[in-house]
């Protein structure tokens, strides 16, 4: 069951990356955490050891895990927001480049054609 949950989460993550909702760069720590903690959580000895170390042997602690789950959800949403911002930033850069280079292209063509080229559009 645990393994299925891990595989399911990995597929969700890959699906978000595939759809462009999370940028590949930003998915690296997410996937690493999933793999490392996923493998560790399958080891009962490790889970018991960690529980003892952290003193998590009390049932109401489940509330904390629910809170953590919500936080993870929030982080995922933030990742998607940052990804959208990055894509928009790239779009702005591309438009800016297109305008700047179009002016330079016109200048070069006008000069090659022997016409007045005007001031060279240096940024």
């Amino acid at each position: 069951m645990g393994l299925l949950i891990i595989i399911g989460l990995a597929l969700v993550l890959l699906s978000l990356v595939r759809r462009g909702l999370i940028q590949v760069d930003l998915s690296v720590p997410w996937l690493l955490a999933l793999v490392v903690f996923g493998i560790l959580s399958l080891n009962e000895g490790f889970v018991n050891w960690a529980g003892v170390q952290l003193g998590i042997l009390y049932a109401p602690i489940a509330i904390i895990f629910c809170t953590i789950a919500i936080l993870l959800g929030l982080i995922t949403v933030l990742l998607m927001a940052v990804t959208r911002l990055r894509f928009r930033q790239i779009e702005i850069i591309r438009r800016r480049a297109a305008m700047d280079l179009a002016r330079q292209e016109d200048h070069v063509r006008a000069r090659d054609a022997g016409g007045p080229a005007g001031d060279f559009p240096i940024r």
Binding site: R94, A97, A98, L101, E105
Partner: peptide, 12 residues
């Protein structure tokens, strides 16, 4: 991004 800028310009 550099490649996109070049492709944009070449196509336009």
């Amino acid at each position: 991004v550099c490649t996109h800028i070049a492709l944009d310009h070449a196509l336009a």
